[in-house]
Write a protein that binds this DNA or RNA. Sequence first.
DNA 1: CAACAATTGAGAGCACTGCTCTTGACTTTG
DNA 2: CAAAGTCAAGAGCAGTGCTCTCAATTGTTG
Lengths: 224, 224
Amino acid sequence: MQTIADITRLGREHLALHGAAALSLRAVARDLGVVSSAVYRYVQNRDELLTLLLIDGYNELGDEVGAAVDAMPEDDFAGQFIALAKAVRSWAIREPASYSLLFGSPVPGYQAPGERTTVPGTRVIVRLVGIFDAAYRAGALNAEVLPAVVIPEKLAADLAAIRAELNLAAPDTSLTRGVLVWTSVFGAVSFEVFGQYGPDTFTARDELFEHQLRVLQGVVGLQG
Amino acid sequence: MQTIADITRLGREHLALHGAAALSLRAVARDLGVVSSAVYRYVQNRDELLTLLLIDGYNELGDEVGAAVDAMPEDDFAGQFIALAKAVRSWAIREPASYSLLFGSPVPGYQAPGERTTVPGTRVIVRLVGIFDAAYRAGALNAEVLPAVVIPEKLAADLAAIRAELNLAAPDTSLTRGVLVWTSVFGAVSFEVFGQYGPDTFTARDELFEHQLRVLQGVVGLQG
DNA sequence: CAACAATTGAGAGCACTGCTCTTGACTTTG
DNA sequence: CAAAGTCAAGAGCAGTGCTCTCAATTGTTG
């Protein structure tokens, strides 16, 4: 089964060089030094290869995020949050095609098989809420920094399900703000990777991102 | 020049039905009842059609956002912000393919011609900072709600350029928070449109978005 | 060791794509 | 009325995903 590893490796190269939509099984076969029909022995179809690359990407991101968070002191929740976000951004900038595949527009006609992608695909958010929840349990989360906003009943029901699913202790206010921070981090990274800022509006992108993280840290009530 | 309008119209339909990557000039030609080579009379190539659809999308979004904001009282800055964000989300959910084209992963091999897309492409953010700046000038912006975060010099230089370019009065703190709110809004919308939340994590999506807007409103210091 | 079975790659082929070029018909203009 | 311009058709090239058959190689078993 060395071949299937070669195929995903070459697939990753093509993904990085030409993007997901231009991912061609024939080109991979060429690089593999084999005729196109031969790769169908190992990979059912193009979508299957996409799924392999998807899982691959999720796991690489998850590993890097995990390592970055683990490198911080166990009680430095703000530091862990910053480290997580920076790890996401670093990986995204280094692997823009993979990031696009995971977090960009869905590939038309392709539906990720949930039973294979959900677990690796939720590693980052699970880790993030883990940080917030640990901070809450340690009394390091102060939700009073911003004016309180009422949470409608329907939303509270969703939050209750999440709390049960992930064994969380944090209250609704903290959970919704955690979700907001989550989307904001990926929104900022996506803007950068997808070129929404334009070529020269922001030259100090490291500083901009770091600054946004500090503000978000305040939003969720992590004292730094 | 009716033909070119027909082509973009059919292009939009195909975009909505099959997505940007699957946009085929031949299929458009078929629907137009004409042979494929004929459309090359009117549209230089596939990228040109993509550009037309891009500008079309930006303008439609810009129009809807503008109308939504204009419908609010001139001194209700928080209401204007909420209206803008909701208009973005409504349009994105209604036109997911167009939204993907504008704010999703870049189409591989396609580079938008800045001289044609920059102006329509910045309508929303220009409008958004306009709201924040007007609020600041009216004394309705309170940046003290969150702990102050230092702004490094390089970032301040970027902000100074933006301030000059758009004739703004708001200070750095408000500007960076405006940028954060901007990315956060689009991050939240992208998560929803791109299916990052998963199929059933959040059932109360209207409420979730509204709640996030209220929190963001606090972040930028708009009193509601 | 020989016979059988399973695995693997090659090649042809179908239907599709973007795009170019030439040819012929039609319409407008001088 | 003839020249000039406009337009669509059709053939063709190179690429794509994918399926099928066939031959060669390899592994297994009696």
